[in-house]
Nucleic acid binder design. Structure first.
Length: 491
RNA sequence: GGCGCUAUCGUCUAGGGGUUAGGACGUGAGAUUCUCAAUCUUAAAACACGGGUUCGAUUCCCGUUAGCGCUACCA
C-alpha cells in the first residue's frame, strides 16, 4: 500500500483552522496569535486553513470577516487552504479506513437516537446492530441507496489506553472503551470535523496542533484517526479557554459583539495592544512584565508559560472591555511615535464628523495622547480644536472656585488685552499670562480657569498654553470675547 | 449520568516543602500640577475545603466541593 501521508517535515508547522460560521471572536483570535507566536518563535511555518465542511452553517460573510479580523491583527501566514477543496482526499481516506474494516456504515436516521443515547448508565458508545452488521448486508443497503453515516469502529474490550503528552496539560490518557463510535462521514457524504481535520493535518504535515482546550478530549478520537490513516500523530498542546465573568465559555450567541475582534478594532484598540492583552490571558512571560511589544512576546513565547486554568475576560454590560485591555491600549498608544498615532487618529476624527488637516492633527496629537485610552476617545477630547463655533457651555464654568462673575470678567478682559500682542507660542503665552495673573494679584489657577473654559468650552482640557498656541490668536481672541459677553448676559 | 480538565488578591498572573506569598489592572489615600490626564508614593485585597505524607505544607498525595469541557451525521 502506498504511503498516503509521507513523513512530516522537521521544522515546526502549525495551523489555525477557523470554521467560517460567524465573525472572528476573541478566543479564536488568541488561538491564532499563539499559533503564530509558536511558529515564529521556532522559525516554523504558519498555515491558515478554513475548516468549512459544515455546509449548513458556513457563510461567505463569515469568511470575509475572519480575514478582515486577521488582517487587522497584522500577523501573516505562509500557506492557505480551504478544506472544502480537499474533499476528494477526505473521501479517499475515508474509503481506505472503511476498506480496512476500521469503520462501518450506520444506517440509523440522523438524530434518531438523540434522546436515549446517554443516561444514568453512562454515555452512548455505539449501536451494536449497526456496528455488527455483516458486510454483505451493509453493501446491499448502501447499494439500495439507503443513507448512512460512516462511523469509526473504536476498539472494544481491549483495555487499551489512548495516550499522548499534551504540551500544556501533560500526560493524558483515556480508555478506548470509553470513546464512542464517532462519525467520520455524514449521511450526505461530507466528512465530519474530526475526519477532515485529521486528514488535512496529516496531509499538510502539521507538526504541532495548538488549539482550545475544548478539544482536549477529542484528541483521543484524533489519535485513533491518525492511526487508521497510518500517519504519525502530531504533538498536541491545548490552550485554556477564555470565559465570561460568569465562567461560561465565550460565545457569540450568549455574549454578542463583545467577543468579536471587530468590536475592539472599531473602538480604537491598537492591534499590538489587543495582542498583548490576549497573550496575557492564559500565558505568562514569568518576568513580572505586562506591557510587551510583539517582538518581545515572540522572543519570550514558549508553551511552558501557558497556564492550565480558564481565563476570565473581565467585561460587564456597562463596559465591554476588560480594564486591563484598556490600560494596555493606553500604554501602547503612548509608545507610538506622534506621526504614527496621528495617522491612526485621523479616521476616528473623520468618523466623528471632523475634517482637520493632517497638520492640525499632528499638532493636536501630543496634547491629547496622555488623555485617551482608546482611539475613539480622541474626537470628544479634541473637538474644540476643530470646531469653528464652540458648543454651548454653562457660563458659570467660567467663574473660578474662589471668585465671582466680576472676577472672571476682569480676568478675561485683561487676558484679551495681553493676548492681543503676545506671540502665540508656548513660552511667550505662559510668561505673559503668568505676569497677568501677578498683575491682578491672582493665583495661577484662578487666572487660567476662566481662560481655559473660554477657549475649550469646558474645565477639563489639555494644557492651556500649548492649546492656545495650536489654536492661534485668531481663534482664541474671539472665544474670549464671547466668554465676556456670556458673563455680561449673566449679570 | 459517564469521561476528562482545572482551582493563589475582584480580574490577569508569579512562586513553590520553611517567603513579610511577588507583580499588573482596577479600587482607596497622598504627592506633583494651570484643570484633566500622565507620573510618583502608599493602602486594602488571595493560597476553595477536609484528610494524609513530613520536623514543617499554599506547594506533594488522596478525597470533597465548585467550575469548565467532551459526551452530535457542530466545529
Amino acid at each position: 500500500m502506498p504511503e498516503l501521508f509521507p513523513s512530516p517535515a522537521s521544522t515546526p508547522r502549525v495551523r489555525f483552522a477557523p470554521s467560517p460560521t460567524g465573525y472572528l471572536h476573541v478566543g479564536s483570535a488568541r488561538t491564532f496569535i499563539l499559533n503564530w507566536l509558536f511558529a515564529r518563535h521556532n522559525h516554523g511555518t504558519m498555515v491558515l486553513r478554513l475548516d468549512d465542511t459544515d455546509l449548513e452553517r458556513n457563510t461567505d460573510t463569515s469568511v470575509q470577516s475572519i480575514f478582515e479580523g486577521l488582517r487587522w491583527l497584522g500577523l501573516n501566514w505562509d500557506e492557505e487552504y480551504k478544506q472544502s477543496e480537499r474533499l476528494a482526499l477526505h473521501r479517499q481516506a475515508a474509503e481506505a479506513i472503511f476498506a480496512r474494516g476500521l469503520a462501518y456504515r450506520d444506517f440509523t436516521p440522523a438524530h434518531a437516537g438523540d434522546d436515549n443515547q446517554s443516561g444514568p448508565q453512562g454515555a452512548w458508545l455505539f449501536n451494536s446492530g449497526m456496528r455488527d452488521l455483516s458486510r454483505e448486508e451493509s453493501d446491499r443497503r448502501a447499494a439500495a441507496g439507503e443513507a448512512f453515516a460512516l462511523r469509526f469502529r473504536v476498539p472494544r474490550g481491549t483495555d487499551r489506553a489512548l495516550r499522548f503528552i499534551d504540551g500544556v496539560y501533560g500526560e493524558q490518557s483515556k480508555l478506548a472503551d470509553e470513546v464512542e463510535d464517532f462519525a467520520l462521514l455524514r449521511s450526505d457524504g461530507m466528512p465530519t470535523y474530526h475526519l477532515a481535520s485529521c486528514i488535512d493535518d496529516a496531509d499538510l504535515h502539521i507538526s504541532h496542533i495548538i488549539r482550545g482546550q475544548d478539544h482536549l478530549t477529542n484528541t483521543f478520537k484524533h489519535l485513533l484517526i491518525f492511526e487508521a490513516l497510518e500517519a504519525k500523530a502530531p504533538q498536541f498542546a491545548h490552550l485554556p479557554l477564555l470565559v465570561a465573568p460568569d465562567g461560561a465559555k465565550l460565545s457569540k450567541r450568549k455574549h454578542g459583539p463583545v467577543v468579536s475582534v471587530t468590536t475592539y478594532r472599531d473602538a480604537g484598540f491598537l492591534p499590538q495592544a489587543f495582542i498583548n492583552f490576549l497573550c496575557l490571558l492564559g500565558w505568562s512571560p514569568k518576568n513580572d512584565r505586562d506591557f510587551l511589544t510583539l517582538d518581545e512576546i515572540r522572543d519570550l513565547f514558549t508553551l511552558d508559560g501557558v497556564n492550565r486554568a480558564n481565563a476570565v475576560v473581565n467585561f460587564t454590560e456597562a463596559d465591554p472591555f476588560d480594564p486591563k485591555a484598556v490600560w494596555l491600549n493606553a500604554e501602547h498608544l503612548r509608545a507610538l511615535p506622534v506621526e504614527e498615532l496621528s495617522e491612526k487618529l485621523m479616521p476616528f476624527f473623520e468618523q466623528a464628523g471632523f475634517h482637520p488637516s493632517p497638520k492640525m492633527v499632528a499638532a493636536v496629537t501630543p496634547l491629547i495622547r496622555e488623555r485617551i485610552k482608546l482611539l475613539r476617545d480622541a474626537a470628544p477630547a479634541a473637538d474644540f480644536f476643530f470646531l469653528s463655533e464652540l458648543p454651548p457651555y454653562d457660563p458659570a464654568e467660567l467663574i473660578p472656585q474662589k471668585g465671582d462673575a466680576a472676577l472672571a470678567a476682569r480676568v478675561l478682559q485683561h487676558a484679551e488685552q495681553v493676548l492681543a500682542t503676545t506671540t502665540f507660542d508656548h513660552a511667550s503665552l505662559e510668561s505673559a499670562l503668568r505676569e497677568a495673573a501677578a498683575a491682578l494679584n491672582l493665583k495661577a489657577g484662578s487666572m487660567f480657569q476662566p481662560i481655559r473654559v473660554a477657549i475649550c468650552g469646558r474645565k477639563n482640557a489639555p494644557p492651556l498654553f500649548e492649546t492656545m498656541a495650536v489654536l492661534g490668536r485668531d481663534v482664541c481672541l474671539p472665544r474670549i470675547r464671547q466668554a465676556i459677553a456670556k458673563l455680561d448676559a449673566l449679570a
